[in-house]
């Protein structure tokens, strides 16, 4: 589904990603962990198409297409979903209206007719239950005045509505209390199918107690320096990142 080959990217002349290689197949859950500043969020942003980043090399193939050639909206319509680390507040745009516009543009892209108001509402109700989000919240301006947990739940709700092929969750667990974390994780698990894939970007092993990854990768200085299964995450939890950093620094030195 997704093949990242030697991806290099910079921001404002500073190299952040120094050659990422990663392959994600349908049905898989990949966790990308790493210390602060290792390039985790940059990777998520580059995959979603944020224009502040300069691609310096490498390629990204997504369902047979050159992902880096697509605009952010084209990526979204092809099924790439980024759950934002810091969902932006947009006063004056209600979540409901925004999602209706988004969903219908995605449907249009796939040659499907726009959803009428009744079907849209029905779909919304169904997905709302999944992330235990309140209707009142959705008629308010997008994320405006939402608590941290509400913002993150709203991201997963949007994901449920848009049913992406590839979901990238950028530190969706950061700052969540255990109840909110459980709700968010539960939503993600229920949305998992054999045909879609998830990339979890996280700083903490805690999330992986709730969403069990097939692969764990450690990102450091813009490279994946170690990959393993879920036991790698436990190892990191126990020993921290220092041992792995030392290993990597020794190799490169």
């Amino acid at each position: 589904m997704l093949k990242i080959k030697n991806l290099k990217a910079s921001v404002e002349g500073k190299m952040i990603l120094n050659g990422i290689n990663l392959e994600v197949k349908p049905g898989e859950v990949h966790a990308i962990m790493g210390p602060n500043g290792s390039g985790k969020s940059t990777l998520a942003s580059v995959l979603a198409g944020r224009e502040d980043y300069q691609i310096e090399g490498g390629e990204v193939e997504y369902i047979g297409k050159d992902l880096l050639d697509l605009s952010p909206e084209e990526r979204a319509r092809e099924g790439v979903f980024l759950a934002f680390q810091y969902p932006v507040e947009i006063p004056g745009v209600s979540t409901t209206n925004f999602l209706k516009a988004a969903l219908n543009q995605v449907r249009e892209h796939h040659g499907k007719p726009a959803l009428d108001a009744v079907s849209f509402l029905k779909l919304m109700k169904e997905k709302m239950a999944l992330v235990e989000i309140d209707q009142a919240l959705l008629s308010r301006s997008l994320n405006e005045g939402f608590s941290g947990g509400e913002k993150k739940r709203n991201e997963i709700f949007q994901m449920a509505m848009l049913e992406p092929k590839l979901a990238i969750l950028d530190e969706t667990d950061s700052g969540l209390d255990i109840d909110a974390l459980r709700i968010v994780a539960n939503g993600v698990n229920k949305l998992k199918t054999r045909d879609n894939a998830t990339i979890l970007i996280t700083h903490y092993q805690r999330l992986l107690d709730y969403i069990v990854p097939d692969f764990v990768h450690v990102l450091y200085k813009g490279r994946i320096i170690k990959s393993g299964d879920k036991s790698l995450a436990l190892q990191l939890e126990e020993k921290g990142y220092d041992w792995i950093k030392e290993e990597a620094d020794t190799v490169s030195a």
């Binding site: 979603a48 198409g49 944020r50 224009e51 605009s71 952010p72 909206e73 990526r75 979204a76 319509r77 980024l82 934002f84 969902p87 932006v88 947009i90 745009v93 925004f98 999602l99 516009a101 988004a102 969903l103 543009q105 995605v106 892209h109 949007q158 848009l162």
Partner: peptide
């Protein structure tokens, strides 16, 4: 940031 957020959900620029 707001523009990117909307576009990242499939909405045209």
């Amino acid at each position: 940031e707001q523009l990117f957020y909307l576009r990242a959900r499939g909405i045209s620029e």
